[in-house]
């Protein structure tokens, strides 16, 4: 059994059933056509249910059906990483359930989410300097002066590109 495929298939099946149900709120028939706006999403939802069941069944049977050119490793897909592993600078670290990589990933998502929230509140420059400094530090640069210079530099470069060269209105502070 390929457990990840079975779980992914079950999640996709749930999404498809939810979409099918949700499409019930869309008018079924209009003056211009008999199918109405709900038909297409429901068609897609049914197709997605079939594909999800296919993923669950093949996952339960332990089968992985690769695409036309992705077989056997002779030909690689766009997403494949062919490079030989490069030497790592850090030893694997674990903090409870999570490894260092997961913590960095979580840190990035949290900082990005906070950034999108504070951007319209305190404005582009302060929010960007703070968020970029946090991201640089999370990504592995711990020297404070370099973190500060990097954050200010990236903020300034983007400001120059978007606000000065392309005359775009960057978010201003609404708090003050």
């Amino acid at each position: 059994m390929i457990r990840s495929n079975v779980i992914a298939g079950a999640i996709c099946l749930s999404i498809a059933i939810f979409v099918y149900w949700l499409a019930g709120s869309v008018p079924a028939m209009t003056a211009t056509d008999n199918l109405g706006g709900r038909f297409f999403p429901r068609l897609i939802a049914v197709a997605m249910m079939i594909a999800s069941i296919g993923l669950i069944v093949t996952g339960l049977l332990g089968i992985e059906i690769s695409g036309g050119t992705a077989k056997g490793g002779a030909v690689k897909s766009e997403d494949d990483e062919t490079a030989a592993p490069a030497p790592e600078d850090e030893a694997p670290l674990y903090f409870g359930w999570f490894g260092a990589g997961e913590l960095r990933l979580g840190g990035f998502v949290v900082v990005m989410a906070i950034y999108t929230m504070i951007l319209p509140v305190i404005g582009y420059i302060p929010s960007s300097v703070l968020a970029f400094a946090a991201l640089i530090a999370i990504a592995g640069e711990y020297r404070p002066i370099r973190v500060a210079l990097g954050a200010v530099g990236i903020t300034a470069l983007l400001y120059f590109l978007f606000a000065i060269v392309f005359q775009m209105n960057l978010p201003g502070p609404s708090l003050f």
Binding site: N5, A8, G9, C12, I15, A16, V19, P41, I44, A45, A47, M48, A51, S52, G54, L55, T58, E64, I65, S66, G67, G68, T69, A70, S77, E78, D79
Partner: peptide, 18 residues
């Protein structure tokens, strides 16, 4: 074509259509 599992390729396509 270039997917490791065609059902996943189909689901990704259908998700885009949704």
């Amino acid at each position: 074509m270039a997917t490791k599992n065609i059902f996943k390729g189909a689901i990704a396509t259908l998700f885009g259509l949704l």
